[in-house]
């Protein structure tokens, strides 16, 4: 019945609705029973898919989510363990999560993918450009687990800082910057401020959000992804008509005119990568390829590159070999 459970953890959870209900009933009375708990505390990709399915099949809450209930735990325990959540629900929604259920729904999880970096130094493939944190790719595989982004930041933030410092020390001289390229970039950035009329960047952002939400969401399918690539192209075609009012000081509309170009690139990269990967793995779920295809896709990473003509090239590369010291930590299971 719990179709979203990872196979190896199935034994930890209730096998039937009835068993789950018995567990909840006794837990709410503060008693123990031989029933196993329902599988609420799974990885985020599982929980998101489960919520999405419940809502789509008509079992959602009034606001289009599901109920999460931790009120069976002692109130003091909830307030101590989840102080921010307790405060936020209380202050923003008048909901006391120690007394009753809260409504929850999936949002963006994490960008599992990003700038390709060297693990030791954080160096990207562009000399002098370094990346760490969510913008850097590869750290979390297909599904970041809760708590891991903080460790990522601490470890790879330190490595990348040291890497960038070492690079700077070796390249003391001021690099040559092509003044023509700088002038072109400045002109392009300033253009929306100079146009009298045109498209509002907020309108482009809204349209892009709608496309990505509707077509490249939790569940993906080939036809939707192709449609999304078309739609993204149509929005990109409106970029040269962007116009913003106001000056250069703290102007969010002007800032968005710049950001929306980046949003389009990232959205296209996500969509083309999702289309390329004909399997389901971690947070990437294809309705038309619901299984994880270890033989076809295990050991292959997607790569997004800019071609000479500015278009996007999406291909794959072999997963790097796991270093011996890491493999030995994981029980010699390097592959």
């Amino acid at each position: 019945m719990w179709k979203y459970l990872p196979e190896d953890r199935r034994g930890e959870y209730a096998a039937t609705d009835d068993e789950a209900k018995r567990w909840v009933d006794s837990a709410s009375r503060g008693q123990t029973s031989d029933a196993r708990r329902p599988p609420e505390l799974s990885t985020r990709d599982n929980v998101s898919r489960a919520i999405y399915t419940e809502v789509r099949e008509g079992r959602g809450t009034p606001h289009g989510g599901v109920f999460l209930d931790i009120s069976y735990l002692p109130a003091e325990h909830v307030r101590r363990k989840l102080p921010s959540m307790y405060d936020q629900f209380k202050e923003l929604a008048d909901v006391d999560i120690t007394k009753g259920p809260m409504e929850v729904g999936p949002t963006t999880h994490y960008v599992m993918g990003g700038v390709r970096v060297d693990a030791e130094t954080g160096a990207s493939t562009v000399p002098g450009l370094f990346a760490a944190g969510e913008v850097a790719g590869g750290m979390h595989g297909a599904n970041r687990l809760g708590g891991n982004s903080l460790s990522d930041l601490l470890v790879f933030g330190a490595r990348t800082g040291a890497g960038a410092a070492a690079h700077a020390a070796k390249h003391a001289a001021q690099s040559y910057v092509d003044p023509v390229q700088v002038a072109d970039a400045a002109r392009e950035l300033a253009a929306p401020l100079e146009r009298e009329t045109g498209e509002d960047p907020y309108a482009l952002q809204r349209d892009l959000q709608e496309v990505m939400q509707r077509l490249v969401g939790i569940y993906r399918v080939e036809a939707d992804l192709n449609e999304a690539i078309d739609e993204i192209g149509k929005i990109r075609a409106r970029l040269p008509r962007l116009a913003v009012r106001g000056g250069r000081v703290y102007n969010p509309g002007w800032n968005l005119a710049f950001e929306v170009r980046n949003l389009l690139i990232v959205s296209e990269g996500i969509t083309r990568s999702a289309l390329q990967r004909t399997e389901s793995r971690g947070a990437h779920s294809r309705l038309d390829f619901p299984e994880t295809d270890q033989k076809g896709w295990g050991g292959r990473n997607g790569v997004v590159r800019r071609r000479e003509d500015g278009s996007m090239d999406v291909t794959t590369t072999k997963l790097p070999t796991m270093p011996d010291e890491l493999g030995s930590l994981l029980g010699g299971g390097a592959h």
Binding site: D200, P201, Y202, R206, V244, R245, G246, G247, V249, Y250, N251, P252, G253, W254, L256
Partner: peptide, 8 residues
């Protein structure tokens, strides 16, 4: 988003 895109 709707009336004053330059509101800081």
């Amino acid at each position: 988003g709707n009336a004053a895109p330059d509101l800081a």
